[in-house]
Write a protein that binds this DNA or RNA. Structure first.
Length: 433
RNA sequence: GCAGGGGUUCCCGAGUGGCCAAAGGGAUCAGACUGUAAAUCUGACGCGCAAGCUUCGGUGGUUCGAAUCCACCCCCCUGCACCA
């Protein structure tokens, strides 16, 4: 059996990963032996995004410390919708869609935890398996009776919805907490699961579960929440203008993923290293100290991008991301071979083929249509500032209507590749058809 | 059902007959400075290369002219009433 790392909670603490926990000291003692814990992920999309990364990685930290993780995919709760700290009632997804998402999340979650490591091997469970078969009357009599509406409406997580002038909260969403509480009680009963972890927005749901388990089974179980990831500038973590950063490489390429982390602000990057990597706290402190002492560009963002990309997309994904990054930001296009250019597109550099019709469009339309920018106006602005480079050559507003000319085969690398750079960070590879 | 309040460009939020593609803030994009950072400053920010075109819940109407006025409709909120 795996040796239990008695220092786990201290490490989590040092990483800033503990927002709240039930039974403070008792949990320390409790975790001196190998325990079973769970964390839930609701299928609200066909992929998880980096918002779920902290709980996911924490599950892994527990497993590495010798505990047994259960990853719960919310096939049932996903049909209801968690109202916690949500401003508005959400629209329901159809059961077949949720079911298909459940399958995707199961596969995704499975990559982070080990299913074959003896006693602490992980298990994936789906709460539809037990909630789906409970009758309404049984549920109301056996579970509902343990919940006091008076207490439920006091929960911070739904308070704003209840007090709200605008949208209120439906009975459906209000019930969510009871379902999640029931999950914990069930997992205790059938898997001897005694700890639930989750984002700090889950506190109300988690304590609901510890209470219910005590009432139904007379057992003490624990809850621990992880901090909400915030950015120093106050904007939402995990979103860029081009959208959410997904874990699915088909939705967010490893290159885009790598770039996301590489662009972390100095004020956030050391915190992110503690949250999102398995580097030791000591190692991270050392990096921080070195960066503080050195002038110029810190090494932290590079380390962060490398570690997290490897964690999510593996060595290959990381290699692809680094390849593209070094080609695109070194500025030396001549270093690239023909096969290099071909590979870049496969590696996830945005790319497209240029047809004759494309060459008839103004640059503004062309670059907007291929997704580089949202509207032609941005291209116009960039052209006016010499911020559009085609194969390294700056283009101006007068070139806007000369698409065929600037994308002429004679100017293309190897007669067919044209690399467009807009601003500092946007690159797109065109291949002449 | 009755009474009252409200629906404005990605978000918040001004605007109550022409000077409105619509203040201000946020977000976002680009430039300068840098380090593919932050802060700051500059520009852009409905669509369009442009001429121009399309917007202020919906549909009609009044008017030379409507986001602004009128009618009807839809949706949301708050009270009150009512019924299973």
């Amino acid at each position: 059996m795996t040796a239990v790392d008695h220092n786990l909670l201290n490490d989590l603490q040092a990483r800033g990963l503990i927002a709240q926990m039930t039974g403070d000291d008792q949990l320390y003692t409790w975790l001196q032996e190998s325990r079973t814990l769970y964390c839930g992920f609701d299928p609200t999309a066909d992929s998880l995004h980096i918002g779920s990364l902290v709980p996911l990685l924490t599950l892994r930290r527990f497993q590495q410390a010798g505990h047994k993780p259960l990853a719960l995919v919310g096939g049932a709760t996903g049909l209801i919708g968690d109202p916690s700290f949500k401003a508005q009632e959400r629209k329901l997804n159809t059961p077949d869609i949720v079911a298909s998402w459940v399958e995707k999340l199961k596969a995704q979650v499975s990559r982070f935890i080990d299913f074959d490591c003896g006693e602490s091997s992980a298990t994936v469970v789906n709460n539809l398996d037990w909630i789906g078969s409970v009758s309404v009357l049984d549920f109301l009599r056996d579970v509902g009776k343990h919940f006091s509406i008076n207490n439920m409406i006091q929960k911070e997580s739904v308070k704003q919805r209840i007090d709200r002038e605008g949208d209120g909260i439906s009975f459906t969403e209000f019930t969510y907490m009871i379902l999640q509480s029931y999950d914990f009680a069930e997992l205790y009963k059938h898997h001897n699961c005694t700890l639930q972890i989750g984002g700090s927005d889950q506190w109300g749901n988690i304590t609901g579960g510890t209470d219910l388990t005590r009432r139904l089974h007379g057992a003490q179980v624990f809850g621990l929440t992880l901090p909400l990831v915030t950015k120093s500038d106050g904007t939402k973590f995990g979103k860029t203008e081009s959208g959410t950063i997904w874990l699915d490489p088909a939705k967010t390429s490893p290159y885009a993923f790598y770039q996301f982390w590489l662009n972390s602000a100095d004020a956030d990057v050391y915190k992110f290293l503690r949250y999102f990597t398995f580097l030791s706290v000591g190692e991270i402190d050392r990096i921080e100290a070195e960066d503080k002492g050195a002038s110029g560009r810190p090494q932290a963002q590079g380390v962060l991008a490398k570690e997290v990309t490897r964690l999510i997309h593996g060595e290959e994904g990381l290699y692809a991301a680094e390849r593209i990054t070094s080609s695109m930001f070194s500025g030396e296009l001549s270093d690239l071979s023909e096969s290099d250019l071909q590979q870049l597109a496969l590696d996830g550099l945005p790319s497209s083929r240029l047809t004759k019709e494309d060459l008839a469009k103004p640059l503004t339309s062309l670059l907007a249509d291929c997704g580089m920018v949202k509207a032609g106006r941005e291209v116009k602005d960039a052209l006016g500032r010499n911020a559009v480079l085609i194969n390294g050559e700056a283009k101006g507003p007068e070139d806007n209507m000369k698409t065929a000319e600037v994308f002429a085969a004679e100017k293309a690398l190897f007669g067919r590749f044209l690399l467009v750079k807009l601003g500092k960070k946007k690159n797109h590879l065109f291949e002449l058809a």
